[in-house]
């Protein structure tokens, strides 16, 4: 039986879709059977980030409404045949799906796949409730900004209320130089304030933009910092112990940050 992991954040634009695509692809690249589910109904995006937008025939709403069989709606990835996407509907609204239906769907998917990764829409309304309904675990994505961390805190509260306990945190778009200059909250500040376990840190990286342009997740780019961070996160999800911080302190904060990100390992 597989595991259903929802990628959520509260605030929009912090990197949920990017993270979903990279974690999903990263898990598939190390041999897991993975399905990515886009629950952002009306604002479908995961398909483009993965470069699969031309292959969509059916979507999530077609499946929950019984317009097609589940298998028919699953799109096979170009690179990994053990990776699939269930795209969101683009022309329906969020109320087209209900939490009960999502629970049932996730139940079916995890019989087939090792990991079911759910890309959650922004907000705390219906779309959020649908996205978390069938989840076993939650990953909260934030950026090092007050507004994003505040929303993350709210989401953590709501996840707990929904009995999704012990979510883990990904801090995205960290800029080592700004942290060094005291102009960006660092990782410890955030895990301290949110009282949550850290799953990984992803740096700001132009390669993310390039990879999104191409429809090829950065996790497959061996020269991308962010890609390296996502490779580590994927390994951690499978239970592998990839250390976050090495205890040997190196030359200053930049060196330490590189270590946090998993370089020099």
């Amino acid at each position: 039986m597989g595991q259903v992991i929802v990628i959520t954040s509260g605030k929009g634009g912090v990197g949920k879709t990017t993270t979903s695509a990279n974690i999903g692809t990263g898990l598939a690249a190390i041999g897991n059977k993975v399905v990515l589910v886009d629950t952002d109904i009306g604002l479908r995006n995961l398909d483009v980030v993965l470069g699969l937008e031309n292959r969509i025939v059916y979507d999530l709403v077609d499946v929950t409404h019984g317009n097609c069989r589940l298998k028919q709606a699953l799109i096979k990835d170009k690179r990994f045949e053990n990776l699939c996407l269930l795209p969101a509907a683009q022309t329906k609204d969020k109320s087209a799906v209900e939490p009960e239906q999502m629970k049932e769907l996730c139940g079916k998917l995890k019989e087939e796949f090792d990991y079911v990764i759910i890309d959650c829409p922004a907000g705390i309304e219906m779309g959020f409730k649908n996205a978390i309904a069938g989840a076993d675990k939650a990953v909260v994505v934030t950026t090092p900004e007050i507004s994003a961390v505040r929303d993350a805190d709210r989401i953590i509260g709501l996840l707990e209320a929904a009995e999704l306990r012990n979510p883990t945190l990904i801090v995205n778009r960290i800029r080592p130089r700004m942290v060094k200059n005291g102009d960006m909250m660092d990782i410890n500040d955030m895990i301290d304030i949110l009282a949550i376990e850290l799953l990984g840190v992803v740096p700001e990286d132009e390669k993310i933009v390039i990879s999104t342009n191409r429809g090829e997740p950065a996790v497959l780019d061996m020269n991308s910092w962010a890609g390296q961070a996502y490779r580590n996160i994927a390994k951690r999800i499978t239970g592998e112990n990839v250390p976050l911080v090495s205890l040997e302190v190196e030359d200053g904060l930049l060196g330490k940050l590189k270590r946090i990100l998993g370089f020099n390992n």
Partner: peptide, 12 residues
């Protein structure tokens, strides 16, 4: 104070 510590205080 650095903008980071201002952010931390406001966030708290």
């Amino acid at each position: 104070s650095s903008s980071k510590s201002i952010a931390k205080e406001r966030l708290r």
